[in-house]
């Protein structure tokens, strides 16, 4: 291989082809729960002004997830995983990890939620990731991004 970039176009769920390079690629070990057969993904920014990242399957154009760095809205967020689990993607401590929370944006986007109980934990060095389940009870599957402390936002 002569270039480290390895540019190519991929089909995406969000309606257009996108150019990616090797830098976009991640391997999600054992896939996401419920989607175990899909391990190869590209991380693609939603836009310059947007905090969201697409996690687009390379094998199935219709399969993509919206993700976000959870510390953007939950600064103190530190999920809890066993050393064994972290070592499955060659991490020794959670402080080395890049975290992505999977987001659900419903028809009313004010009610968007992020899954803080089972984030995608990434090792930026080897581009491996895994969806891990935090053993902290305080981290919710549905953390309301626009609410206070993850509670549903107040209606106005």
């Amino acid at each position: 291989m002569t270039t480290s970039e390895n540019k190519r176009l991929i089909k995406t769920r969000f309606g257009k082809e996108v150019e990616i390079t090797d830098k976009n690629l991640v391997t999600i070990k054992d896939g996401l729960l419920g989607f175990e057969t899909y391990e190869s993904y590209a991380v693609i920014p939603h836009g310059d002004e947007s905090p969201f990242l697409w996690l687009q399957s390379l094998d199935e154009p219709q399969l993509a997830f919206i993700t976000i760095d959870p510390r953007i809205f939950a600064q103190d967020y530190v999920p809890n995983f066993s050393e064994n689990e972290l070592s499955s993607i060659e991490l020794t401590s959670i402080s080395e990890a890049v975290l992505l929370a999977i987001v659900v944006i419903p028809d009313d986007p004010k009610l968007m939620t992020a899954n803080l109980q089972a984030p995608i934990v990434l090792n930026a060095k080897n581009r491996q990731g895994k969806q891990m389940i935090s053993s902290s009870q305080e981290h919710k599957v549905r953390h309301y991004i626009l609410g206070k402390n993850g509670e549903p936002p107040e209606k106005k």
Partner: peptide, 16 residues
């Protein structure tokens, strides 16, 4: 929740 996330079609730009 993962399945819901894969199927949700809310407005991402509005969310941002």
């Amino acid at each position: 929740e993962n399945r819901l996330a894969a199927d949700a079609r809310g407005d991402l730009s509005k969310g941002a």
